[in-house]
Design a protein around this nucleic acid. Structure first.
Lengths: 246, 246
DNA sequence: ATGGATGTGAGTACACCGTACACACGACTG
DNA sequence: CAGTCGTGTGTACGGTGTACTCACATCCAT
């Protein structure tokens, strides 16, 4: 055992964001948090989240696998980095009037981001820590919009969570369906339901799901994602307005 | 190459649920879909979803790994089986009056199930196919509740999806926070925020998130999950009632 | 009753994954 | 000019999902 250093640990910066902030000495400048994150996001966009492995990512960057671990303590932190990158560069606070406008803008931005980076939903469900700087900024803005309307901290957070919960769930639904269609090169939802059929048909044949069966036969807006998204969002916002008197 | 059978493939049952239905000849009866699913659910409940591997599961069942593949085409189908099992045995349609009662019951059942099997949310986000028989039954019941109130198929589905989207998102939030607390043996949310601190504190110190910072200091119901859940649910239901005139 | 068909579980093997560890290089600081 | 420390390299280990082949138990038709 070596001379046994007196201080067990000097003062490791510990958190990822703190480490990023100070620009590092830069002896060799091949890699950076930004370049790693960008490459990972690109890979996930193109081939899906499960295609992002430390090996493939390092190969894509022309670097050994273990080099990544200088910037990231493990794959979890890589995911955090990706998440924050996906939510970066979005309009800080669109010129929307009142809390309602702010929440609509928030919802629209969320959908745009999720459609561009479908793996986000998978990530936020798996990941333990999802509160990256850009995500916190988003929540902070929403929170501010409600407190500005006169709500106390608890109620404002409850309102924010109600809206964000809906957004998250609705997007998870939509993305899930879209990914299923994409995976099979289907353009139309009818294709989906047709080849989804082997399972769905059999289930429907059992006659146990009359309402669902009726829906599949008579519905017309089965693929109108945007309409359904806005419809649900309006319900939540209406409910908030009525219930909180704002 | 053997005599080259004329029919390339006789007629494989293909879908998991179809295969389950017919009980199979049963030459050896060590395993069954039910026993596999039950063991997997038990493992996931106890040690988390990531602890469920084909090897560990087979070991737990006293069987070789590959034996499982006689009942399941791959891990995806195992997950499907688990999902369906988790949603099984729930009261088919509680004696709740009207669509509103039905949706409240639906929401409560969903929360109970999610708290009992936290891995469900992780699963539905990752899984391509989440429409297992028991899940479809749930949707069918909800759909029926709305059509009974006079809604057409499209609107009824939009309403169902609005409610289910909120439920899904809200539970994902709650479960995520609870899992984070459980993972560290924290009992209180303050513990969470305290040790979450290294990251959170630093972010807050930047002063970039005034509203969020204010919330962390003045809020009192930070851990009242049930209250927030019901609050958001009521908002959605109020919005539906007002917007659809039901 | 008996012989073959049929499905079951065993065993082996492969490719891939995340990451721990020890080492070599090279630019900045003194 | 010399030393240091951050940076990237190489190797290795344990774990994963699953494809393939083979021995055997059970049931059905004879």
């Amino acid at each position: 055992m070596a001379p046994q250093h007196p201080n067990p640990e000097p003062a490791e910066p510990a958190t990822l964001w703190e480490r990023i902030e100070r620009p590092a000495k830069a002896p060799r400048t091949t890699l950076s948090h930004a370049s790693i994150a960008a490459a990972a996001v690109e890979m996930a966009d193109a081939e899906g989240l499960e295609a992002v492995s430390m090996r493939k990512l390092s190969g894509h960057l022309g670097v050994t696998t273990m080099a990544l671990y200088r910037y990231v303590t493990g794959k979890d932190e890589l995911f955090e980095l990706m998440l924050d990158t996906a939510f970066a560069g979005r309009p800080p606070a669109a010129p929307a009037p009142g809390w309602r406008g702010a929440m609509r803008a928030h919802a629209e931005r969320s959908r745009t981001t999720a459609l561009r980076h479908p793996w986000i939903l998978e990530l936020t469900a798996t990941q333990v820590v999802t509160l990256t700087p850009n995500v916190v900024a988003e929540i902070d803005a929403a929170l501010g919009a409600f407190t500005a309307a006169g709500l106390d901290a608890d109620t404002a957070m409850a309102a924010v969570q109600a809206v964000r919960a809906y957004i998250r769930g609705a997007l998870a639904d939509e993305i899930g369906q879209r990914e299923l269609m994409k995976r099979q090169n289907w353009s139309d939802g009818d294709d989906l339901r047709h080849a989804y059929g082997p399972r769905m048909n059999w289930l429907m044949e059992t006659g146990r799901y009359p309402a669902y069966r009726d829906y599949t036969k008579t519905a017309r807006r089965k693929d109108d994602f945007a309409w359904r998204y806005d419809f649900g969002l309006d319900c939540v916002l209406d409910g908030l307005a009525a219930r909180l008197g704002i």
